[in-house]
Each structure stands twice: as structure tokens, then as C-alpha cells.
Design a protein around this nucleic acid. Structure first.
Lengths: 343, 343
DNA sequence: TTGTAAGCGTTATCAA
DNA sequence: TTGATAACGCTTACAA
């Protein structure tokens, strides 16, 4: 119950026997050089010993910087986000920034309120993992003219800083892999076309399919309304209902793939014997499901880390590369297999 | 690119033609009554129209309150936490509090750093979901004399405010359910005994087992080192290796149960035909696994909400009930079935 | 009912 | 190299 009193600059100054401003300067890495090094030494020792910690509010009031950035994710439950957040935190904390992460559950209203609270608190920067191709919240945030970086997705707009993955390459690899196993009639469960990942993966599919000379039947594509399991199930039903045959399904996302797997087994179609399935993201646990999922691995942690660094540059007034495109990797597991009968 | 300028009290005051302090009072719900209601009206209208927002740092500096609370969870990936966090946020936001949630991944060092950053920033209160029975971080936080509420778990200490569930009742229900299906030899996978939930559920098992007159063979209990799937698998191996027979396993947690299921099927034991399994928590997805898990449902959202309310009372200097114990519910699904042969 | 003024802990400008 | 001082935007005695 020892109510620790907060130590202020003034107290440190008194202890050392110098003026407050001297202490302030001695403690700031950028102003330290102005002060006699013995004094700096003394000040640092004293502040350490007295357990001085800068009063964040006072600092903010004076400098108008909070050393805080907001992070908005669509769904914290989605296992790809925690590693990403960790990456963001790790890169930001080195420079003394704190990340406040908020979760929108895809609710646009909630996202707006969240942004409002964050801006109200005064954040120095914003990382958006939730952005849609046309995004009010992004526009709103941008109009506040605080630095923004989007991760994983990007809006249909120029001059947006973002960290994304090489979507075409990912789709191309998955498709090439399937083709190398003898598949020719390959269906796709495409993601929401309102998201850049959804649109780009679909475009890449169309593109790669033709460059690989595959049957390009439009009815072999089902569009999911959301990146979740039930949308995946629904799409499989749709594909089957359309009456077309296929020996493989390329899914725009692991959760869609998980749903697809469930729907297939409900139809007594065995994966991979009857139909091969690929996912996208390599989220945690997909190596533990039945069958372990062949998927495209993205760099979750790194994506976050890079976003943090990019944002820091922006906040320092530098001009980092506008877009960083991270490479992806094909992870082959047991949900894909050689096609059985010649076709 | 319209750099919106921040509106200050002074500007609102000028617009209305009164003094800053009048505006301040008119805007504060507690001081509003001091001001002529016409003026209040005017001030509110003006501030709305000018989009005034209180400068959080200035407010904090003056009042020494940040309207911010820290929330520390062990593992955000664990699906029981997001609903809980949502509950916390919802209850706190009504009073203008912002929750900053941090994730420790069970890393004690990280937890300490996190607490440090939070305290450094000045939080008005703390919610700990990560607490162990003996917990340095809790002690540290307590020594800062900021209000703390623990959720879901509690330390072995008196005078700790917390929201927990009725663990004995939960275990009792699960066990009674199994007994009602004819099971007599029931194993337990107990959770880490360093956590209150682990210890309490184990104690309840021992207690209920004797009051139900079951075989009380100590080797029918395996202790998991952590609440995760691999620990669950490991424990099943241990139980089987011990060579004892059992027709059911009561698991201290859903993730342990998921692991147990995996291990059983690897041993070609069918659940629930050969052995019934129960979980604990009713976390998302356990109704989708194979077989859908019989489990004890805890109130994740409500737990968070109550924690938020309790903390608010504490922060207001009130004295809420020290411990709130929430009731649990048995959810019967397909992982439990009547025992086959008389035994 | 409203105004005055002090002060929260910093940083930054200016002088010394 | 250091000190004095003002200012950041707000709340809150105290006065009027």
C-alpha cells in the first residue's frame, strides 16, 4: 500500500543541484549534447535512482505528440492478426511508441467510433488492417492528416502507404502447384471483391489460368461475401449446385478453405482424393486440421514490423517507399494430391 | 489534405462570448448545474458545431486522470478473450474510458514491461486476466496502488477484487452428467496448478468425485503444464501409459479437450463410443469440431463487462463487492455418451 | 452565476 | 554550457 509518489523533473533537478531545464536537456537524446557530460552523467544517475519517469501527459501537452499510434484490425479473433500486431508493437516500442489496438468486427459504425476515440486521444499515427477498397474511415482519417499505413490490404487510391504481399505470385504458385499435380478443371472460391486482397487474388486467378491454358469457365468461380468458414461452405454448395465438375478448389483464404473442407466432407467428397483444396495465409492451426492444408504463407509478423517502421518514418517526416510488397511462399501439405483418373 | 486545427476551450469561449472557465463548467456534467442553462445551451451548441474535443493530455495533466485503463491478457489468440475484452470495452466506454489491451503470451518478462509502459503512461485502473496464484506482476501493480480487478482467475491473496466463475459448480455438473450416463471410471486432465482455475477445478473434481462415490484413483488424474492442445495430447498419452482404464475424461479446459480428442483418435479410440470427453469454457469453434464438445459454458462477455463496472466503482472510490461469482452452464453436445458395456 | 488566476510537468526560446 | 521564463489546454479554488 506504499503510494509511490511520482518524481518530477523539478525533484531530480533539486537532487542534482541544477535547473529543471538542464535536467530536461540531459535526459533528451537530442539535446544531451548541449550539456556538460559530467552533468549528464549525474542527472541520468539521479533520475535512474529516483525512478523518474517523464509525465506522458505533460510531454504531450507541450510537444503535441503522444508517442501513441492506433491500430485498427477487423477481427482480432482471426489468428493472422496477433502475430501482425506483435510485429507492429515490436517495431514501434523500440522508439518508445505505444500501440493501441482496436477491433471493429467488420462493423463500420464501430470502426468510425473507434477512430474517433483514437483521434480524440491524439495519436501520432495510424495503422489500418481493416481497410476496404473504398473506405470512408480511411478517408476520414486521411482528412485528419495524420500519417497512415495500411497493412495487408490497400484502398483503391493513390498515395497510400502500405505493406502488402505479392498476391499474383501467391495465386500463381498455388495454381501452378495444382496444375503440376495434373489438375485441369480448377475452381476458385474468391474473396470479397470489396477488399483489395479479394480483388487481386481473383484477378490473378483469371490471369494465371489463361497463361496456364486452363479451362476458363466463369461458373467455376464462386464469390464469398466474407472471409469466413460459412461463406466457404456456401460457395462449395454453389459450385456443386452449378453442376460443374472440378478436381480442385483454390480458396482465396484459409478460413474459406476450412469451410470448403467441411462442405466437401458433408457431400462425402474426400479431400484430397476426390478434390484438392488450397488455402491462403497459412494461419495458425491449418496444419492441424484434417487434412493439413496446402496454402500460401504470408509473413504476418514481418508485415506488422514493416508497417511499424514505415509509419515511424512517416511520423518523422521522412518519405519511405510508398508500397512494400512482401514475397509469399507455397506450403505443401496434404490437402492437395495428384488427380486420380486422367481427368 | 485539410489540416483540421484543434479547437480549444478558449476558441469556444470567444465564439460564445464567455470566459473559458464558464465553457469548461458548462461542458462538465458535474459542474454544468453551476451555469445558467441558456449559456450551457449555447456553449454546447457552439462546441458541437465547432467540433470541440477536449485535449486529453491537458485534461490529464490537470486532473491526474487519464481515463484510460490497462487490460492484460495472457494470450489474445485464445478465443475466450476477445468477447471478454469486448465486454470490458463496452462497460468502460460508457464512462469515457479507453481500454488499452496488451498481450503477454505467458511471458512474465513481457508482462512486466507491459505493466511498466502502462503505468508510465498513467492508467487509472488495471484489469488482469493473466494473473497467477502467486504473481509478481500483480504485486507490483498493487504496490502502485492503482485499482485492480482480476478476471477469470485470482491470486492467492486476500483483498483482491475479481470476477470469476463458480468453478466447483462447473466441475460438479460435468461430472454429474458423466455419471448420469453410466460412467464410473472417470479420468481428469487437470490444468496448471499455478492458476486458480486449475487448482479450483482440480479440487472440485476430487471433492465431487468422493461425494458421488466414484473410484478415486489418483493415477486417473494427469496434470497439464499449460492450457493448450499439446498438453492435452500429452496428458492422454500419460493416462493411457499408466495403464488404467477409464470411460470418460473430464478436461479442465476446452483446449486440453481438443488435444485429448486428437490423442484419442490417434490411438484409435473413438469419442464418444469408447471414451467420452468434456471440456470447459465453451470457447468458439468447439461446437464445430468432431465430435462437437460437451462443455461448461462460462460467460465471457459478461465477465468482462462486470470487470469493467467493478473497476469503475473502484476508480470512483466506491467499495464494490470484492468478488463476483458468475454462474456456469452445462452444454451437452456429442462428445459424451452413455457408457457401452455395463462398465 | 460568472470571471480571475494559479498551476499541473514538460519543452523551447531567449539571455546570460 | 546553463538558467529563467513562457507556454501548451485544461480544471478549480477563490473572488466578485
Amino acid at each position: 500500500m506504499t503510494t509511490k509518489k511520482r518524481i518530477t523533473l523539478r525533484e531530480v533537478a533539486e537532487a542534482v543541484g541544477v535547473h529543471v531545464s538542464t535536467v530536461s536537456r540531459a535526459l533528451g537524446p537530442n539535446t544531451r549534447h548541449l550539456i556538460n557530460s559530467d552533468v549528464v552523467e549525474q542527472v541520468i544517475r539521479a533520475s535512474r535512482q529516483m525512478d523518474y519517469r517523464r509525465h506522458a501527459a505533460a510531454y504531450s501537452l507541450k510537444t503535441n505528440r503522444t508517442k501513441t499510434v492506433g491500430v485498427i484490425v477487423p477481427d482480432i479473433t482471426n489468428a493472422i492478426f496477433p502475430p501482425m500486431i506483435r510485429g507492429i508493437e515490436d517495431s514501434l516500442s523500440t522508439a518508445g511508441y505505444l500501440a493501441i489496438v482496436g477491433n471493429t468486427d467488420g462493423d463500420n459504425e464501430r470502426e468510425r467510433t473507434l477512430l474517433d476515440t483514437l483521434v480524440g486521444r491524439g495519436i501520432d499515427g495510424l495503422i489500418l488492417a481493416s481497410v476496404e477498397r473504398k473506405d470512408d474511415v480511411f478517408d476520414l482519417a486521411a482528412s485528419e492528416s495524420i500519417p497512415i499505413v495500411t497493412v495487408n490490404r490497400r484502398p483503391d487510391r493513390d498515395s497510400v502507404h502500405s505493406i502488402v504481399h505479392d498476391e499474383s505470385e501467391g495465386v500463381r504458385r498455388a495454381l501452378t502447384h495444382l496444375v503440376s499435380l495434373g489438375h485441369r478443371r480448377i475452381a476458385m472460391i474468391a474473396g470479397p471483391q470489396t477488399l483489395s486482397t479479394g480483388a487481386e487474388r481473383y484477378a490473378a486467378f483469371v490471369q494465371s489460368r489463361s497463361s496456364l491454358n486452363l479451362d476458363s469457365d466463369e461458373s467455376l468461380v464462386a464469390f464469398a461475401q466474407a472471409y469466413n468458414e460459412s461463406a466457404g461452405e456456401h460457395c462449395v454448395e454453389e459450385l456443386i449446385a452449378a453442376g460443374h465438375t472440378f478436381t480442385a478448389i483454390l480458396c482465396a483464404n484459409d478460413r474459406l478453405a476450412v469451410g470448403a473442407l467441411a462442405a466437401l466432407s458433408r457431400r462425402n467428397l474426400i479431400c484430397p482424393k476426390d478434390v484438392s483444396v488450397t488455402g491462403y495465409n497459412d494461419m495458425p492451426m491449418v496444419d492441424r486440421i484434417d487434412p493439413p492444408l496446402t496454402t500460401i504463407r504470408i509473413q504476418q509478423y514481418r508485415m506488422g514490423f514493416e508497417a511499424g517502421s514505415m509509419l515511424q518514418k512517416l511520423m518523422n517526416g521522412e518519405s519511405p517507399a510508398q508500397v512494400v510488397v512482401l514475397p509469399v511462399e507455397l506450403v505443401i501439405r496434404s490437402s492437395t494430391a495428384r488427380v486420380l483418373d486422367g481427368r
